[in-house]
Structure formats: structure tokens, C-alpha cells
């Protein structure tokens, strides 16, 4: 069953009278439980594609259907709520709230969803334990390493029980060991809980782990390789 359907998606930026096609007529489908990487050189359009899938950017043409909902047709407030309930985000620069502890950062998104204190408490500890930070739940981001912060970000992305997680260059700021740990955790969550992960990356380590690799060049999908 398709979680995401992308149909003839095009994004054109109008910058100083020059029209730039960042994404050009892309059509893709993602099924539940995929572990996919969108790869390509800088400026190829992979982040723009990811932003449009996440409802952060509007397409110029085409549409994205998530779980039967055309997200391009949602009003701003509905789109924010849709993101809250359906999509998990992991950013390159972690983007944790510095004044909150690891546990509070994970809990925060659940509070936005209106989850009870007990549920928030249990799930945040469970997720932080799953990403190997069960002992650091009360640490603030400044007291965590880059790899640990990104693991908190993964836990936060999963806290809302999303239909899929979008990770934009999640390993770009991490060393090899942290990258390996993070990818192992995400792969394990993907296999055990059947969570869909879509990465935009040009990190070969991520590409090696991915079971589907979509290559984008100049806004076009040039290859879509599925691995066993």
C-alpha cells in the first residue's frame, strides 16, 4: 500500500527574472516500511523534493497524496496540523530546543498533539531508550554530543507516531561512528516498527544502508533502484 504518491511534481523558483526548475515532473510512490534515500549532487533538487513531500514547500504543478490526502490542497492551518500528526522530521542541524531536556524535547511534540502526561512520559522514555539515550533523558542539548543530539531528534520525529519520517541530510554533521550508530537505530526502528524513512543525502554510508535509492539530477529522477 502506498503511503505517499507523488504525481508529476514540478517546482519552479522565480529568482531575478530567471525561472529555475528545482523539481521537474517527478512521479514517485512510497510504500509503508520503506527505507529510501534520495541522492544527488548539491542543487539537484533533493531537499526541495523532500520539503514538498513534508508539506513545507508548495509545488508549482502536480500533487502529493499522503494517505489519500492531497496535501497541496490543505489550508495553512490544516497543513500544520497534518504535519504534526503524520510526518516526522529530522534536520541536518538537529534543531532541538536548547532550553528543554532530551525528554522534554521528545515530549513537546506529543503535547502539541494533546497526549496525556502519562503517555508522554512513557513514550518519551521508551523512545530515548530505543535510541540509546535512556541514561541521558534529563540532559539538555548542550550537554550532548552531535550524534546524541541527532538521536534525540530521531526520537522526537517518532514521538508523534508519524506515517513516515523525512530526514534531510541527517548525518552531514556527524562523525563516522555517530553516523553508523544513528543509521543502525533508524534501520532497526524501520524493521521492527515498519516506520517509513525517506532521506535526502549524499552520504554514501546512508546510501549503502538504504533499500531504495532514488537519484535526482537537475530536478529529474534519473534512477530509482530497489535493493533486497
Amino acid at each position: 500500500m502506498n503511503v505517499i504518491e507523488i504525481n508529476n511534481l514540478t517546482k519552479i523558483y522565480n529568482e531575478s527574472e530567471v525561472k529555475v526548475k528545482a523539481v521537474d515532473n517527478v512521479s514517485l510512490q512510497f510504500e509503508q516500511g520503506e527505507f529510501a534515500a534520495i541522492v544527488g549532487p548539491s542543487g539537484s533538487g533533493k531537499t526541495t523534493l523532500l520539503n514538498m513531500i513534508g508539506g513545507l514547500d508548495k509545488s508549482t504543478e502536480g500533487d502529493i497524496v499522503v494517505d489519500g490526502v492531497k496535501i497541496g490542497e490543505l489550508k495553512s492551518s490544516k497543513l500544520i496540523d497534518f504535519r504534526l500528526r503524520n510526518i516526522g522530521f529530522v534536520f541536518q542541524a538537529y534543531n532541538l530546543i536548547p532550553v528543554l531536556t532530551a525528554k522534554e524535547n521528545v515530549e513537546f511534540i506529543m503535547e502539541l498533539q494533546g497526549k496525556s502526561r502519562v503517555e508522554r512520559d512513557e513514550r518519551s522514555i521508551a523512545l530515548l531508550s530505543a535510541v540509546g539515550l535512556g541514561e541521558r533523558v534529563n540532559a539538555r542539548p548542550a550537554k550532548l554530543s552531535g550524534g546524541q543530539q541527532q538521536r534525540v531528534a530521531v526520537a522526537r520525529a517518532l514521538a508523534s507516531k508519524p506515517k513516515f519520517v523525512l530526514a534531510d541530510e541527517p548525518t552531514a554533521n556527524l562523525d563516522s561512528k555517530s553516523t553508523e550508530t544513528l543509521l543502525d537505530i533508524m534501520e532497526q526502528l524501520n524493521k521492527e516498527e515498519n516506520i517509513t524513512f525517506i532521506f535526502s543525502t549524499h552520504d554514501q554510508r546512508v546510501v549503502n544502508k538504504a533499500r531504495r535509492v532514488i537519484t535526482v539530477e537537475d530536478g529529474h529522477v534519473v534512477s530509482d533502484e530497489r535493493r533486497a
Binding site: G54, L56, S76, S77, I80, D81, R83, L84, R85, F89, F91, A93, N95, I97, P98, I109, L112, Q113, R156, S160
Partner: peptide, 16 residues
């Protein structure tokens, strides 16, 4: 700005 952008991206609405 970056933090506020992240909050809005993950689903914090304008009212909040």
C-alpha cells in the same frame, strides 16, 4: 528564527 522555523515545521501552529 531557526528554532521557530523548526517548531512550525514539526507542527506548532500559529496560535501556539
Amino acid at each position: 528564527i531557526k528554532e521557530l522555523g523548526m517548531l512550525m515545521a514539526i507542527g506548532m501552529n500559529k496560535k501556539r
